[in-house]
């Protein structure tokens, strides 16, 4: 008699009643294939627990503790958008950013490895101390090209420009090629830090010309939508940014 997967799962999760559990446990001794299926489920669970285990020992931001320390229940501010608009979360957001940067640099290691293995990292992307940094024609295009221009022979299209929540100038780009790479880079300390980069599947078979924005991978669009502060820059703001060398104007 075979045992269905759901029963095995319930066994591993401790959801069978005592009698069923004991009966199955007895069978395992004389049924190695069954024992192997159980072992695989347990292994998967343990692996998942290990993968999420370390996060428990991370320090909790003071702002979160502060909510619980507040003398009276805080006024109900249910809508995050409302709260963002208040701008009260400035300091907290910075704490979040530090973590986000850390998580991003971890993810970037993998992305960089992936790009390299796809033969796409090439001279345009380098892994520096602060993460992935644009080089060569990508860096030049990020500094010089305007978003409406098309690739102008550089092999790079600029999708849009914007300021991130930290105030830096950022630009979403597509690096053309057999396997285009789309991403977003922000101007930090005089270089273009690539916060997200995704190698696309092979270029569309249709061969039709699409706009640069539509070629940005969903993950890139998502990252941009998470990080953008306000609206994308319009043409004149973009020109002004370029004229200023993408340095953040003093406040």
């Amino acid at each position: 008699m075979s045992v269905d997967e759901e029963t095995l799962m319930r066994y591993v999760d401790g959801e069978l009643d005592a009698e069923q559990h004991a009966a199955l446990a007895r069978r395992l001794a004389s049924d190695p294939p069954l024992a192997a299926r159980i072992a695989a489920l347990e292994q998967q669970r343990d692996r998942l627990q290990r993968a999420y285990g370390a996060e428990l020992s991370e320090p909790v931001p003071a702002a979160l503790r502060a909510v619980l320390a507040a003398p009276a229940p805080a006024a109900a501010v249910a809508d995050l958008a409302q709260r963002r608009a208040r701008g009260a979360a400035r300091a907290r957001r910075w704490a979040g950013r530090e973590w986000a940067a850390m998580a991003a640099s971890l993810a970037l290691g993998v992305i960089a490895a992936q790009l390299w293995s796809a033969g796409r990292a090439g001279p345009e992307l380098a892994l520096g101390a602060g993460g992935l940094v644009a080089r060569g024609r990508l860096a030049a295009a990020l500094s010089e090209q305007l978003s409406g221009e098309g690739d102008a022979g550089s092999g790079v299209r600029i999708g849009l420009s914007y300021r991130d929540r930290a105030g830096a100038f950022c630009r979403a780009f597509v690096l053309q090629g057999a396997r285009p790479v789309s991403g977003a880079a922000c101007r930090v300390d005089g270089s273009w830090r690539v916060g997200v980069a995704v190698a696309s599947p092979a270029a569309g078979a249709s061969g039709e010309l699409r706009t640069a924005a539509s070629e940005l991978a969903p993950a890139v669009l998502r990252a941009v939508s998470d990080d953008i502060d306000g609206e994308p820059l319009d043409a004149s703001a973009e020109r002004a940014g370029r004229a200023a060398g993408w340095q953040v104007p003093a406040r």
Partner: peptide
């Protein structure tokens, strides 16, 4: 991560 902390903060406020 940043969304997570925003969501958690809002959730704690709601809970209280």
């Amino acid at each position: 991560a940043a969304d997570a902390d925003d969501v958690l903060q809002a959730a704690l406020e709601k809970a209280l």
